[in-house]
Design a protein around this nucleic acid. Structure first.
Length: 437
RNA sequence: GCCGCGGUAGUAUAGCCUGGACGAGUAUGCGGGCCUGUCAAGCCCGUGACCCGGGUUCAAAUCCCGGCCGCGGCGCCA
């Protein structure tokens, strides 16, 4: 039985025999009485061994016991002035495994170690409840994503991660040997989710890994991460896509109490989204706000830099009491060729980014679904049509207007919990320096 | 890719600027001892480190040069 279950039913189980299995979290040895705190995924529970009750022999078995030994302990559950309100009066202990060497990382205080050390010994670090909580929350976000979009009539798809070319410039992809040819790890499911819409599924979503071969050195980039992707056909405008994205975040905000324990442990605040909706600010307006409010100048027609995003994040927080802000109508020159350009001003696009507490966590927009326009876009970007031939083919036989978005699962997790480094939100991060463990 | 910072016991740190009493301090872990209600248990004893190579100097953890490794900012992006 999980410790969490024992504690949940403690009222009924009081006075009866229980068995708890897990790792030894702490030992407090007072000589004639020994407290052994056991930890499993669901919590910790104190067990107590008394010499006067058990005799010398049982106590001797505890010699050499130390932190992170794997044990099962049998005993009687009773009330006690512990944090949990209960303890197990132990009758026996079964030792299943013990550390062969001094621990390179102390589990109960692993967060005091440097991130490099923690990642090197991640199997120890992840035993810290504060750490495993991150991944419980991450799994919860993924589940909410599935639930929300399924409920909105979306179908989950599973697209190839080995691909023939990148989706944009092709510069930032990892090559892999594919029999006698070179293939690449997918940097985005972009083309295939559009494929799925055109193939008649109309509304699709996918949770999958994406690979970016950029040598970045920052706290918000990984070379492998999980992308939450959606794509929707028959939209009226890119606002429909934003509505779907906002709906998902609203769902997260509403249901956040389901993961209250994790939030409390990380002292994470609620997600604030105004009743009227998250503000949608054209980037040209954002330039003005940054300049007038903060004296921050972004060159006209450029993307926001990280500082600009942070500032805009605090602006909407104060002005709209919102953790979310859509920045819309990005310049054509900073967006990929498949973005739809605005009818009346082709230097701008029907696209958006979503900033969550000042960090870009979602990118999306309406896609160009008209074959000839797509060819023009490619040409305008200086891309070779031949390289995107297979993609262009999709659009020859009836492609509805559509749009979609890609969201970074680790970035969302990081922003919900206020983590300082995205690597914390990835069990085994892949970055420029790290491919093990 | 460009720029900046750093590398001291298993882990986390002090010391470095201003070279000498640093024979490298502290916490925790680990080994041993005492202890029957701890909850960061406590107390006592022990254990264990200056990234590598070269240079300056009477003297280098400390200053200089090179290397290796790591971290971060920017660019790019989720």
């Amino acid at each position: 039985m999980f410790i969490g279950d024992v504690l949940a039913k403690a009222g009924d189980l009081e006075g009866s025999k229980v068995r708890v299995c897990g790792w030894i979290h702490r030992i407090r040895d007072l000589g004639g009485v020994k407290f052994v705190i056991v930890r499993d995924r669901t919590g910790t529970l104190q067990t107590v061994f008394k010499k006067s009750e058990l005799g010398e022999e049982v106590l001797e078995e505890l010699e050499g016991l130390r932190e992170e030994c794997v044990v099962c302990i049998d005993g009687m559950l009773r009330r006690a002035p512990t944090k949990e309100g209960f303890e197990v009066a132990a009758s026996s202990l079964t030792l299943l495994s013990r550390p062969l060497e001094p621990l390179p990382l102390e589990v109960h205080s692993s967060l005091k170690a440097g991130l490099t050390t923690r990642l090197k010994y991640r199997w120890l670090d992840a035993r810290n409840p504060l750490v495993s909580g991150i991944f419980v929350l991450k799994a919860w976000v993924a589940r909410k994503f599935r639930e929300y979009y399924s409920s909105q009539g979306f179908v989950e798809i599973f697209t190839p991660k080995i691909v023939a070319s990148g989706t944009e410039s092709g510069a930032n992809v990892f090559p892999v040997l594919y029999f006698d040819r070179v293939a690449y790890l997918a940097q985005s499911p972009q083309f295939y989710k559009q494929f799925a819409v055109i193939a008649g599924f109309e509304r699709v979503y996918e949770i999958g890994p994406v690979f970016r071969a950029e040598p970045h050195h920052t706290v918000r980039h990984l070379n492998e991460y999980h992308s939450l992707d959606i794509e929707v056909g028959f939209i009226e405008s890119y606002h429909d896509v934003m509505d779907y994205v906002e709906g998902f975040f609203r769902k997260l905000a509403e249901d956040l109490r389901e993961v209250e324990d994790v939030l409390e442990a990380h002292q994470a605040p609620r997600i604030r989204i105004p009743e009227s909706g998250a503000p949608r600010i054209p980037i040209r307006k954002a330039y003005e706000i940054l300049e007038s409010e903060y004296g921050k100048r972004i060159p006209y027609g450029e993307d926001l830099d990280p500082e600009g995003e942070k500032l805009l994040g605090s602006y909407v927080r104060e002005k709209y009491n919102s953790d979310l802000v859509f920045v819309i109508d990005y310049p054509w020159r900073v967006r990929p060729f498949y973005a739809m350009r605005k009818d009346d001003e082709p230097e701008w696009t029907y696209s958006f980014d979503l900033l969550f507490r000042g960090l870009e966590v979602v990118t999306g927009g309406q896609r160009e679904h008209r074959y000839e326009r797509l060819r023009e876009n490619l040409k305008d970007k200086g891309l070779k049509e031949e390289e995107f031939q297979y993609y262009l083919e999709f659009f020859k036989h009836g492609a509805p207007p559509h749009g979609g978005a890609g969201m970074g699962l680790e970035r969302i997790t990081m922003q919900i919990l206020g983590l300082q480094n995205i690597r914390e939100a990835r069990l085994l991060p892949r970055d420029t320096e790290r491919i093990t463990p």
